[in-house]
Design a binder for these strands. Sequence first.
DNA 1: ATCTATTCCTGGCTGC
DNA 2: TGCAGCCAGGAATAGA
Length: 263
Amino acid sequence: MPELPEVETVVRSIAPHVVGRTILRAELRSKRVTRTGFSAAETGLGGAKIEGVRRLGKQIFFDLDRGILYVHLGMTGKLLWNAEPSKYARALLELDNGVLIFDDVRQFGRFEFFEALPEALSQKGPDALNIDFETFHSRLKQRRGSIKALLLNQSFIAGVGNIYADELLFGARVHPRTPIARISTARARVIHRELLGVLRAAVELRGSSISDYVDAEGIAGEFQQLHRVYGRAGKPCPICGAPVKRTVVAQRGTHYCPRCQRV
DNA sequence: ATCTATTCCTGGCTGC
DNA sequence: TGCAGCCAGGAATAGA
């Protein structure tokens, strides 16, 4: 489940291979992940030069000399460098020095060529690794609902998904269902600190590999070994020993310690 | 305007 | 061994 740390790891691992290179040929195989159409994408990408690759939240942008290649990994998306294409290879980019494969079993991901980026894609919130407390707090005060739903909302901040939302709320000792209106400035400060702390630690360990996430070289992350609540229902809380609970918040499986995290 | 529920996908797991 | 049924969830979309 690629979230900010996993996407950051992917971008870091592909950048050295692709930046400055030319796309000789593009082959699109999935209508689902390429909604703008096969031929438009193949024509637009063929011959293009990759000037850079960057990340905003979970979105990946390849800046081309003639447009933008937009990639979102969704749930099971991978960008693999010089790998043997599996039956789930949805797009292949043949560069002048190798092949970049977009592999996505469930096709929740996106792989699209745009001459100019559509409004909807550029309207995300600030990147979760690049948000200072004042910005975080002022944006928080304008919202309602539960804190977890807000953290998952990419227009609030971009990059947090289900795993890191649970982990950072545990670190902040805040119950995922806590109404935003009940969060004090001091609490907000702790949440912000944990947001940056958890994401930075996860980037250091090259992300979390829960099911099949790997970087461009096929290397798994290691942060899952440090998960304190996510996927640990029934196991003891690492702080107090109480069994970690699983519930549903914002339509997502949610893990928390009922003793350490109070509403 | 905002928030919540539904839908898309398919492999993996559970239980009969 | 086979298979139905359920689960995982990012984000667009529809609905409240």
